[in-house]
Structure formats: structure tokens, C-alpha cells
Write a protein that binds this DNA or RNA. Structure first.
Length: 257
DNA sequence: CCGGATGTTCACCT
DNA sequence: GAGGTGAACATCCG
């Protein structure tokens, strides 16, 4: 479940490689290098140097002297830089690191970067298009959110998860956000009151700041209750479970409406 | 042993 | 175009 917070933790780890030169790639899974393919990637980037790192939503970008390399981690992607993993345990992924799942690696003049991904839902892409993503969630406020909601008839949860609208929020963060702001996930985005929209918009950045400091997307208050017989930490009512926006969703019928 | 659950992205349908 | 559905992925659990 790397969501925006885990992507940022990964980016900080990858930032250690700034200034290094790319000597070779170890491509354990050719399909993982989605866009140009392995050969073109080698052609473009071997010999280049890392200039900086960036992040847009869940996309981590390695900016080199030969262009950008985009890293996406799907839900079970982990990273190691120089053999060290910034996050050992990932929700919904095995806690062990099995080298069979090393999909992609970069060998630098000193050190290495390895992506390990059991389910292969992540990918590597040259020159990823940041413009196809919405604005980064870590800068969204009430004004931006209100504009996005518009008269949309889709569920507010779907909108918040839509990376083309807002980049970075994943299933756990969205459930936590709606739980905190007392809005039921299936409510049509365009039918929220101005007050509700503002409440959600105002809470996105504080939520991200808080959970980043706490350690990640799984550190929300209601996340541990996402199971049968789970109870709302606020009023102790049984949480409701259903599919909303195609995703497993847990909410409190008592205080989210 | 099999079906379901798990989160993200993308292709495809209405 | 907006919105919804399901496939792909691999593993674990009941």
C-alpha cells in the first residue's frame, strides 16, 4: 500500500543517490520496465548521473542528466538503497524480502537501488508524464477540492482516489480522511454541502503531515479497525464494510453521513 | 484445494 | 466525457 506518504519516504531514500553515475541496470522482470522497455532504458540512461529526485502523488521521479526515470510501486513495491530498506514492513505485502521478487535495480558507481515487488503491480517508466496526474495531494486545500467536486455524481471516495483528479491518496488514506471529516464515502461529490467539502479540503494536508510523522498511511486511527467486528474509535459503533468506488471501504454509519 | 480478499492501474464498457 | 467494472498481479487465509 505505498500511498503518497510511503512514496515520500521512498523518495527521501532514493535522494541518497544524487550525484551518482548509473553504470548498469539489473532487470529481473522485463515487463516491469513498462514504457521504453529494457533496451531503450539502458540506451538512454547508462552513463547518466542523478541530479535530483522528485515526487508527484505516488510517482517517484529520479531526475538524471539524461532525463527522468519514474518509479511506481503499486501496492507491494519496496525499495532498498545501498542495501537498506526505508520501510521494512508493508501492509498487504509479505514482511520478508525475497530476492526472487527483485524486479529492477540500478547499479551506480557507488551503491545500488533495488525495487522488490511481489505482485508486480509497480513499474518503471522513462519520462513519466506528470501532467496526466492531478495536483499533488500534499498541497490540496478546500478551494481546489471544491472545484474538483463540481457537480460530479460519482462518490466522493472515487474522486479522492482518482489520480487524475488528485494525485497521491490511496484507499487507506481516503477512508481515514472521510472518517475524520464525518462524510460517508458513497455520497456524490457534487452533492456535498459547501461546509462538508471545505472540511475535507482543509483536512488533507494536516492528515498527511500527521500520518507522515506517525510513520505512514497505516497509522490512521481507524485503520486497525478495518476488519469484521471492527469498531469506530470515536463512538464504538460497528464499522460498516462495503465496496465503494470499486474498493474495500470501511466507515462508521453513526457519525459519517 | 478453492474462493475471496487485498490496493493500484489500466483497458474496456455503458 | 463521466462513471462503473473487471483484469492483472501473488500470496495468504479460512
Amino acid at each position: 500500500m505505498p500511498e503518497i506518504l510511503e512514496a515520500e519516504i521512498y523518495r527521501i531514500a532514493v535522494d541518497e543517490t544524487v550525484g551518482r553515475r548509473i553504470e548498469s541496470f539489473q532487470i529481473g522482470d522485463a515487463a516491469y520496465v513498462r514504457d521504453p522497455g529494457p533496451d531503450a532504458l539502458v540506451e538512454q540512461f547508462v552513463g547518466s548521473a542523478v541530479r535530483a529526485t522528485a515526487r508527484h502523488g505516488k510517482l517517484v521521479i529520479v531526475e538524471t542528466t539524461a532525463g527522468d526515470i519514474g518509479l511506481r510501486f503499486g501496492m507491494t513495491g519496496k525499495v532498498r538503497v545501498d542495501g537498506l530498506a526505508p520501510i521494512d514492513a508493508l501492509e498487504y505485502a509479505p514482511s520478508t524480502w525475497n530476492d526472487d521478487w527483485n524486479r529492477f535495480a540500478v547499479d551506480f558507481d557507488t551503491g545500488s537501488l533495488v525495487i522488490n515487488d511481489v505482485r508486480r503491480l509497480g513499474s518503471v517508466e522513462a519520462e513519466p508524464d506528470r501532467d496526466s496526474l492531478g495536483p499533488d495531494a500534499w498541497g490540496i486545500g478546500p478551494t481546489e477540492l471544491a472545484a474538483l467536486c463540481g457537480r460530479g455524481r460519482g462518490a466522493i471516495k472515487s474522486l479522492l482516489l482518482n489520480q487524475k483528479k488528485i494525485a497521491g491518496l490511496g484507499n487507506l488514506l481516503v477512508d481515514e480522511l472521510l472518517w475524520r471529516t464525518s462524510v460517508a464515502p458513497h455520497r456524490p461529490a457534487g452533492e456535498l454541502t459547501a461546509h462538508e467539502t471545505r472540511r475535507i479540503g482543509e483536512q488533507i494536508v494536516p492528515l498527511l503531515d500527521e500520518l507522515f510523522a506517525a510513520g505512514g498511511s497505516h497509522c490512521g486511527a481507524h485503520v486497525p479497525e478495518r476488519h469484521v467486528d471492527g469498531r469506530c474509535p470515536v463512538d464504538n459503533q460497528a464499522l460498516v464494510h462495503a465496496t465503494v468506488g470499486g474498493r474495500s471501504t470501511w466507515w462508521c454509519r453513526e457519525h459519517q453521513s
